[in-house]
Amino acid sequence: MSPARVDVRKTYKLYIDGAFPRSESGRSYAVWSTPVGRANPRFLANAAMGSRKDARDAVVAARGAVKGWAGATAYNRGQVLYRVAEVMESRRAQLVEDVRLSEGLAPSRAEAVVSAAIDRWVWYAGWTDKLAQVLGGLNPVAGPYFDISAPEPTGIVAVLAPQRSSLLGLVSVVAPVIATGNTAVVLASQERPLPAITLAEALATSDVPAGVVNVVTGLTGEVAPWLAGHRDVNAIDLTGAADAEGVDWGELERAAAENLKRVLRPAGTGSDAVEPDWTAEPGLSRMTTFLETKTVWHPKGR
């Protein structure tokens, strides 16, 4: 009997401006599986422990990508996003394995989660060229004017990805941000970052322009304040503050007020943050929060 093959392991790095760098800080941290039953947690990988500088580099990349992505036709954005779903499907085995180990799921459950994540991505891909008609339109003003309102992306959205749902939750917060023409700096789940990096590999190979999505892994409580206070970030999604160690979402929202970022608060009541049920149909609010309405007037006349 020949010995089992020694497999080739993957190095999990950051995803910034279309490339996969290590953290400039040189730091990494051990990622463990969520065990099922009485098994012990299993070492999965050393993930990059992103720093303030990595987050700032990601913002620079995201700013550089705004013009091209927001300026792309909605049809084109839909095509690119659909392509992401295709590539996710082709990397299905890896995603299932990542989710299974990260979340401690039975194989069949992990399969179902990945299916839901891919379907969620397809759902958002289809929205790109419909939103303007659903949200915008002609305003019947009392005068001889053509007056029209249409949605436009806000710009750069910092996203605190959910801590528990490492793929379906991640997709549910990233897809609406970029479907609407924004660019994203995503802070992956601290304890379960691997599906985020695998998703980044799908993005990198699906015609999503560099910088449109940037993924930073590391300590949420360390990096999130820098993004919340960053003056070139236009909006922040605080969903991932739920169950994040050392994160006070109220403090992040206060920091975000410095340049009046659009803020999507975590679900929950009062100061409690809870992770939402990702299996429900999403609705529009994750997109509309990161959209501006522009209204244009022009006189009519001969």
Partner: peptide, 21 residues
């Protein structure tokens, strides 16, 4: 949030008003 072309300072209850940034 509001762009007036060949006019300025027009307001109407049917027309959304508000800012960016």
């Amino acid at each position: 949030g509001v762009v007036w072309a060949n006019t300025f300072n027009r307001f109407d209850p049917t027309s959304p008003f508000g800012g960016y940034k």
